[in-house]
């Protein structure tokens, strides 16, 4: 388990999807979950950075768990997810500040994700409101953006949740770069994905 967490944590950091101490990951183990330690560096995860606690019930390990544990728990309790990656992808976060949703304009993004909703909340970190609202969207979408904060992606495995996070950032980079080019996009397949 540590190997999987540490490898994906390292990749998230090296890909620029998280800053040194941001982001968190978890997996569900029945009525328990394992989540990264609050303040841990995902790029350098040690075994002691993986904190196991209850899905419903707190225990003493709650004192070490990620600040976002409430959101992770809510996602597990309301979706079929078995793994969650929360990241702070730079381009996607920038787009979340100016757009209503992220619609891929590249082919792979359209195949994979079709559309990424953007949600707004007053409190974005460790927020009860996020915990209440976000799972509804993750029932339908693989990855969702919190405006100005970051992404939550789910999967059966951490690798899968990582994949959606990585795809989201690629999609966002392409959108950003094409906007800076200021040329006409020749194919506008993306328009229909707004209805996804």
């Amino acid at each position: 388990m540590h190997r999987e967490f540490s490898q994906i944590g390292r990749d998230l950091f090296h890909q620029g999807l998280n800053s040194s101490h941001s982001g968190n990951m978890s997996i569900r183990l029945g009525d328990r979950l394992v989540i990264t330690r609050r303040g841990s560096m995902l790029g350098r995860l040690k075994e002691s950075d993986l904190i196991e606690t209850g899905l419903d019930k707190n225990d003493s390990h709650i004192t070490l768990a990620s600040t976002e544990i409430g959101v992770h728990r809510s996602i597990y309790k309301n979706t079929s997810a078995l793994a969650i990656v929360h990241a702070h992808p730079v381009y996607a976060t920038a787009l979340s500040l100016v757009d209503e949703e992220i619609i891929p304009i590249d082919s792979e993004g359209q195949y994979m994700l079709h559309k990424i909703p953007i949600l707004s909340f007053e409190h974005t970190v460790g927020s009860e409101e996020v915990a209440r609202v976000l799972p509804e969207y993750l029932k339908e979408y693989k990855v969702v953006m919190i405006r100005g904060h970051g992404s939550f992606a789910t999967g059966q495995l951490i690798e899968e949740a990582y994949q959606w996070t990585s795809s989201l950032e690629n999609i966002s980079k392409i959108i950003y770069l094409t906007r800076t080019l200021q040329g006409d996009i020749k194919e506008k397949k993306s328009e229909k994905y707004g209805q996804w």
Partner: peptide, 25 residues
Amino acid sequence: NKWIKANPITSQGLPEFGTPVLVNL
């Protein structure tokens, strides 16, 4: 208050179990 509410120690561990939350840890 945003941070007090977001931090699992001050928003969950201590309110739910009191300071003895530290025993097992």
